[in-house]
Amino acid sequence: MTELAQNIVDGLGRGSIYALLALGIAVIFGVMHLLNFAHGELITITGYVAYAAFLRGASWFVIAPLVLGVAVVASMGIEQVAFRWVRGAPDFTLVLTSFGVHFVVEAAFLMYVSASVKNFNRPGWIADTVDAGGLSFEIFDLVVIGVTLVTLVLTSLLLQRTMFGLALRASAEDFDAARLMGVRSDRVIRGAFALSGALAGIAAIFWLMRAGQTTPGAGITPMLKGVLAALVGGLGSLRGAVIGGFALGLAEVLLRARLPDAIAGLTDGVVFLLIALLFIFRPGGFVTVSHAERV
């Protein structure tokens, strides 16, 4: 029982980061139909920014806002350099374009930094725990969950209460109808990338705090988790992406705790397998948003 409660908090902490990444991916998919395999590169890029700041003696109080800002700028920059040229292209082209971005960014760090692991200090409190009612929780998990919830509430307010949020949601549902209402497609897409970058920036802060290191290929794992969570939730559904993120985090932690020791190392493999099965039986994810084909 105690173990379960701890697992759940642990899983929600992990899931928070996935949820933020997945939400950013879903926002972009909504307006552009692009499944962004380059989303993890925001974590690679901010990882090196964090490393550079760390070398100059910056503390996490400086690094964290820096990471957030860089993530927003980088996200919008990638849109300007690559994705804007393939707007409206077939899915095949869009997916491979994002893969291209992923590899160019990775290779650029390979060239200009190095292939080796770059380490920086984690915050001092990262491993601290707090005891409550006989249970012991990592403070870090609680902070992540708290900040994520605040972020999700703010994002939800942005989407519900602002004109930009309305335009974004309307564009995701029917891009042409939104344009007929006077919504400027260019601004919505740029705004979507900015929002997606901000969400990824917050995820990056926690991801980097926990990892304490970065490499040119560091973006692959978070990208994959984010993409899978977004897909599990049903692409295009923002709520589904958040649910998918938490579900993925919980599934990982609970599986790792329950799997027999001999194959505990295969947790990720089992998760991938489960996701493959999900897509075999529910190609649209949990929340199906696809519309029937018109003839």
């Binding site: 971005v101 160019v104 990775e106 290779a107 650029a108 390979l110 060239m111």
Partner: peptide
């Protein structure tokens, strides 16, 4: 410099897609 072949691959993919 080192890493150029990987940049080449990424740019080839990106360039051809666009």
């Amino acid at each position: 410099r080192e890493g150029l072949p990987t940049v080449f691959l990424g740019l080839a993919m990106l360039g051809f897609m666009i």
